[in-house]
């Protein structure tokens, strides 16, 4: 790891000002991606702004029919939150599938979303549940937030403060793990709210994406049978030693059907 200047602001305002004017500064939430990246010397930030001491960025609250999760809320706290389990059990389950217990004790929702790792789990929930991402400067709709591989709509110096998830009628997340890393090789989050169905896929492509054809079929008939013949094109999907694009495309179908079945249970 290259050395850097370390900051541990106690407030969001201090964090924002610590980032200001430093092109090579990096905010750090749970550090579960950033620290391994630094260890491999794949990044060389001048400054690391640790958000861990900003108390009011962590916590879960219910606002009307929304669950609002602070950016610095750890995966473990989302997975075990009574509010999340009651309102959106699929989201609690997803949080409980990220990494391993020690990672869940450190990793945060804000960090995961801001990083936009193609194999991260949370982006699928954000998109499928049509969440709203609040930052120090404004709000982002889920659609359009994840721009590509490790790329989001966040501007320099913009920090996520919370994510608001509307409660769906039904939802489920199915994850097919990479046998080695255990990240999502394909993860499909399906959510039904009224007559609207959203299907979001993570792990398979450069960034989370929706499957329109499945959404259309499922909004008419929310059963796995309704999507059994829908194939996702393999063209733009990821390919590696564990999963070819064709295999991933196939798994999207399988995981989507299983997610629909689970949501219907």
């Amino acid at each position: 790891m290259y050395d850097f200047a370390y900051h541990r602001p106690k407030s969001l305002a201090d964090a924002v000002s610590a980032l200001k004017g430093k092109d090579e500064a990096r905010p750090m939430a749970g550090g579960m991606t950033l620290i391994p990246t630094l260890k491999q010397r794949l990044a060389k930030p001048s400054d690391v702004i640790d958000l861990g001491a900003i108390k009011d960025l962590a916590g879960v609250k219910v606002e009307g029919s929304n669950v609002v999760i602070g950016a610095m809320t750890r995966h473990f706290d989302v997975a075990s939150s009574a509010d999340v389990k009651r309102m959106i059990p699929a989201l609690a389950e997803l949080a409980g599938m990220i990494g391993d217990p020690a990672v869940r004790n450190r990793g945060t929702i804000g960090g995961s979303i801001a990083n936009s790792d193609p194999a991260a789990d949370y982006p699928a929930a954000v998109v499928a549940l049509n969440a709203t991402i609040t930052t120090n400067t404004g709000k982002h709709a889920a659609d359009g937030f994840f721009k590509g591989l490790f790329e989001t709509a966040l501007k320099d110096g913009e920090l996520i403060t919370s994510v608001s998830f509307p409660k769906p009628d039904k939802a489920a997340y199915m994850k097919f793990r990479n046998p080695a890393s255990r990240y999502a090789m394909v993860g499909v989050f399906v959510a039904k709210t009224g007559n609207t169905v959203r299907v979001a896929v993570t792990g398979a492509g450069p960034s989370v994406f929706r499957v329109k054809a499945m959404e259309d079929a499922l909004s008419k008939n929310f059963t796995s049978a309704a999507i059994k013949d829908i194939k996702v094109p393999a063209d733009d999907l990821n390919s590696d030693i564990h999963g070819s694009a064709e295999y991933r495309a196939h798994l999207v179908g399988v995981m989507a059907r299983r997610a629909v079945d689970a949501a219907n249970k």
Binding site: P179, A180, S181, R182, D240, I241, H242
Partner: peptide, 13 residues
């Protein structure tokens, strides 16, 4: 070496 870490080389868990 494409399987150069535990991220890509699957040791049984």
């Amino acid at each position: 070496l494409l399987s150069g870490s535990f991220m890509d080389y699957a040791v049984p868990r």
